[in-house]
Design a protein around this nucleic acid. Structure first.
Lengths: 132, 132
DNA sequence: TTGGCTGTAATACACCCATAATACACTATC
DNA sequence: GATAGTGTATTATGGGTGTATTACAGCCAA
């Protein structure tokens, strides 16, 4: 398990048992979705990311390759990686990610024996407690 | 990715990128928490589970060993594995699992830029759509 | 006691992931 | 052109996971 301190003061904790390169993808997707990395802008170089995340260059490269293939990034060889300017794709991606989370959550709760009605109750109680 | 059809007609889909033995643990935990496997009762043998889940015996064994160590199961060598009768532990486990799901979900949504207020809205909308 | 069920252990093999180290290819700038 | 920064490719090594196979150990009923 690694704990990292990227420039923006945020942090990324790597979970065991999930490939790091996937967690890097997730991290970057969220940076992009939330506008911390903006459309058309250059993201940190593979070597810089590797240092920030205390991870090997190859592992970063693997994540970026896939994101490039997925269209969320584009690569200019010799220059760097850039966030797509396709805001339609970005919006669509955000909606899909959120929906995937909802899906996963509801299924998990159901399989723990929590009905749909109870889910809403549990959640609002949880959020209430969290605010204290 | 494997898809299985245990006796009860349910199904377990293995996700790539997460160790199978952990998914087996999760599956069994949920069977126990929801009362499909009852306190004091024998669970299927390692070999039977291995067949049901189309997985190797060693992989099942690994999951059961950990659950035994965690106290949710106890083993009678030569007889089988049995669900603990410690209902206090079972209740506590259920609460912890649910809380962990809530925690994970809220953090995920937050990191996608969804505020606590929006989370509740999104969820109730999602549940509404799901009912159609 | 035997046979058949149970859990347990050990070995060997293959695959994926991650690292480390090195080298190469492209771009911009001085 | 040289240099520094970028992405890319290659090789070797180690660890975790999952399988397959074989063997051993305990319990129970016929």
């Amino acid at each position: 398990m690694g704990v990292l301190q990227p420039k923006d003061g945020g942090h990324v904790e790597f979970k065991d048992n999930i490939p790091i390169y996937l967690q890097i993808k997730q991290y970057l997707y969220r940076q992009i979705i939330t506008g911390k990395l903006k459309p058309g802008k250059k993201i940190p170089s593979v070597r810089e990311l590797a240092v920030q995340l205390t991870v090997n260059v190859n592992t970063v490269q693997r994540a970026l390759q896939q994101m490039n293939f997925e269209g969320i990034l584009y690569t200019k060889r010799g220059e760097g990686n850039f966030v797509t300017e396709d805001t339609t794709l970005l919006d669509k991606t955000k909606r899909e990610l959120i929906n995937a989370e909802l899906d996963k959550f509801v299924h998990s709760m159901n399989s723990l024996g929590v009905s749909d009605e109870q889910i809403l109750k549990s959640l609002s109680e949880y959020l209430k407690k969290e605010r204290e």
